[in-house]
Design a protein around this nucleic acid. Structure first.
Lengths: 337, 337
DNA sequence: GTGAAAGCGCTAACAA
DNA sequence: TTGTTAGCGCTTTCAC
């Protein structure tokens, strides 16, 4: 590997000049610039990032902590992040933390030791402990897909409102017995997707003067099988739903198949609405009606925000709520009278 | 940020000693080790990776180039990679190259400048140019999900055999008019998934004395809609298939829905078999019969191999073919007589 | 066992 | 415009 010294020697200049050339400093004559570039070319020289990082205390690297990259939702968010980082010449260190606190803190520690310029953090719940850890670490951070009461930049959606809208839509179609399949609630803390969406669900029922049936509220694990099982239990109960709101598309797919396996049809007997609008939600039959989350944008905007923060640019609003959207397909129909 | 100097001063030792402690050198007395550790603790000191990288010419970082992380197949492979890297204390720099040569070479260049210890490369076709670039770069590399004739380590599957098995299975069930939906062929170069699988398809037909109908061979883009369109065309043709082999699950899902939309039923009228066995292939109705690729293992084994290479360990076989497997679900049935 | 000092490859004053 | 030089924070001989 050729170093800056080699280039300097070959070009007959000092290393400072070589450095200037590679940092596009205007104070180099065109002649020497060419000389240097030619020498560099000849030696196949490119500046060493580790050396540069050490000298500048800047790594052009962003840490990215997500629960699980093999989940299509996170994969899409990450894609958005990577795309804008690529534009701004940042690279990404990917970390799967599985929502485990211990792994998260381990990764945060590691990223700090690596002097990353900032981190984008995606977790199920941003706790006080997280807040403290980040504050003490001096790491610049922005949350993706998560809101918080703490003074930390984030890009998320209004989960309460999104769920409210979904359920309200079902109600407007005449549905009265509406089930929900949510995820783990973790002590009903705020800003957890499941909690806020469950609240939205309940509020929509209340605002429309409908009964809240505890039998129609089921918890699952955000997986296909979990959604299937939860829906099946619901369908076997005393009070059966005419519509089910699953708070992730994957669970909604499970719910649809549970409806089928119960010998019923979807949407005729039971409507099902999902959440996320992952790529494959148009591939199910019936195609899934769902609440669309702008996953790619969440990632892209979070990345852009972080880069601005890193560059010390002014940010007018560092807590951004993106809009959700109802995507109407075929898994929901008006209640048969 | 506390540095090694701060710790040395506070502990009343030299920086060399501090360094020894943090590198678990046996040549430090228990007493001083404790003193140093205590001082470090007090200052919240952790060694700086960039500095260490520069001094040791080792970054504990692996570059990872994939076509597109938002594709469930790659996401799963990456998950496998990340899990074993985590075990061995390596971190991953993620790069999405979209199978674009220019982006790939750009990323390779960047990774080299970053002094990554190695790279795992996943592309649709490993060309001579790739080979040269990697050779000249001195980067250690292993290919994931791809084989090659070049002398480069890889972990892949036998695509020819896998396709052959799938089609053979269909034939054993009595099917004679079997369609295939493949991806871009890129001049029929070898080791491209689509090419090898298409060859396997043809060979299975030939070996069983069946006719190869050009009308039943369609190209698509590996997406849901592409699979849908291709199947639809096939179904509208003169010679209609009784079974379709789509070389990715996502395209298979499109094919199934095309069958439905054509007013036919799957599997009764048309059987469909996919490829990959992504998570959601069990969620379709009918659940997808498919050729399972060990995606997670491809990633995990590639990562382990790369780390061994980095450590200069002996490797008995650096070109590994993993086994595929037919996963029988409900989208394929014997031909109705 | 421990410390002094010379790098690792680069940037950034400060001079010239 | 260009060169000199002192770091950046750490590892690693080589003495002691």
């Amino acid at each position: 590997m050729a170093t800056i010294d080699d280039v300097a020697k070959l070009a007959g200049v000092s290393i400072a000049t070589v450095s200037r050339v590679f940092n596009n400093s205007p104070w180099v004559s065109e002649k020497t610039r060419e000389k240097v570039l030619k020498a560099a070319e000849e030696l196949g020289y490119k500046p060493s990032m580790p050396a540069r990082s050490l000298a500048m205390k800047k790594t052009n690297t962003i840490g990215l902590i997500v629960p699980d990259i093999s989940n299509p939702y996170y994969a899409e968010v990450v894609r958005g992040i990577e795309d804008v980082c690529n534009i701004y010449k940042y690279n990404i260190i990917l970390c799967n933390a599985d929502n485990k606190r211990e792994k998260e803190f381990q990764y945060i520690d590691m990223l700090k030791n690596r002097w990353v310029d900032g981190v984008i953090f995606h977790c199920d719940y941003f706790s006080e402990e997280h807040y403290e850890v980040f504050k003490n670490s001096n790491l610049k951070v922005v949350l993706a897909g998560r809101t918080t009461k703490f003074d930390v930049p984030y890009v998320g959606i209004d989960n309460f409102k999104a769920a409210y809208d979904a359920v309200n839509y079902l109600i407007s179609l005449g549905h009265k017995r509406i089930g929900i399949i949510h995820g783990p609630l973790d002590d009903m803390k705020e800003t957890i997707d499941s909690v806020d969406r469950l609240k939205g669900y309940k509020q929509a029922l209340i605002d429309n003067g409908l009964t809240i049936y505890e039998e129609l509220i089921k918890e699952a694990n955000f997986k296909y099988k979990g959604g299937y099982k939860a829906a099946m239990e619901m369908l076997k109960g005393e009070i059966t739903p005419t519509a089910i709101f699953a708070i992730s598309d994957i669970m909604a797919m499970g719910a649809i198949n549970a409806v089928f396996d119960k010998g019923l049809s979807c949407p005729e007997d039971v409507s099902v609405i999902g959440f996320d609008n992952i790529d494959l939600s148009e591939a199910t039959r019936p195609a899934l009606t769902t609440v669309s989350q702008p996953m790619y944008e969440i990632g892209a905007i979070a990345a852009r925000m972080l880069i601005k923060i890193i560059n010390g640019e002014e940010i007018n609003n560092s807590q951004i709520i993106l809009k959700h959207k109802l995507v109407l397909r075929n898994s929901v129909v008006p209640l048969r009278s």
